[in-house]
């Protein structure tokens, strides 16, 4: 555990709490992509299948349970409790364009050809693009509630912080590198660059998040 990894995980935790807070206080899931949230559940479930077979630490175990449970709860809020506030007609990204290629990549790139390991690879590839339906929705509506942008910023920060974490681990753990996690992680972080630009130049200056028409 290093400071980048810890801050990254805390940022990830914060992003989910911000999202829950947004839904509960506005009593609405307007502006949130159900598809992205459903992809995150898929990511967590396929990655954490080892939760009961490989013990890493209490920290690791607790976080995994929290990520699965909280994201399932968000799906419940969106599909049941605040269903009328969710507009599927703007959440139109075709997730099969993500699931198919990620499945193919996982079959091609994995550390062992076992069910668990191929699913682990799949989850890594899928996480890297799971935010696309959300970003696509943002692009379509051209604006976002400030709290939604804080959610995205925290999620992006989590990914960005994993990069110095890997560099740190490379130098402190005898040159170890994880090519699958690093490649997917770099792609994932790159997807946030446009968003970050608008977030830093507008939202943090007190303006509304609006994309140029």
């Amino acid at each position: 555990m290093n400071i980048f990894r810890l801050l990254g995980d805390l940022s990830h935790l914060a992003s989910i709490l911000i999202l829950l807070h947004k839904i509960q206080t506005t009593r609405s899931c307007r502006g949130i992509s159900f598809k992205t949230q459903a992809l995150y559940v898929t990511v967590f479930v396929t990655r954490y299948l080892d939760i009961f077979t490989d013990w890493v630490s209490l920290y690791n175990f607790t976080m995994k349970i929290f990520f699965i449970a909280s994201t399932c709860y968000i799906l419940y809020l969106m599909k049941m409790k605040y269903r009328p506030t969710h507009d599927p007609s703007i959440d139109t990204f075709r997730v099969e364009y993500l699931l198919g290629p990620c499945a193919l990549l996982a079959l091609l790139f994995h550390y062992r050809f076992t069910v668990l390991e191929v699913l682990w690879s799949f989850s890594i590839f899928l996480e890297s693009v799971a935010i696309l339906p959300q970003l696509f929705m943002l692009q379509r509506t051209g604006e976002a509630e400030t709290i939604t942008t804080h959610y995205l910023a925290a999620l992006g920060a989590y990914r960005a912080l994993y990069i110095p974490n890997w560099i740190y681990r490379y130098f402190t753990e005898s040159g170890q590198i994880d090519p699958i996690a690093v490649t997917a992680g770099l792609v994932q972080t790159a997807l946030y660059l446009d968003f970050f630009y608008v977030y830093f130049t507008k939202v943090l200056q007190g303006q509304k998040f609006e994309l140029p028409a």
Binding site: R5, D50, D54, V56, N60, E117, R169, D178
Partner: peptide, 10 residues
């Protein structure tokens, strides 16, 4: 599972 760096991350 393997002991790749990513396996003990979240």
């Amino acid at each position: 599972s393997t002991d790749s760096v990513g396996h003990d991350e979240l």
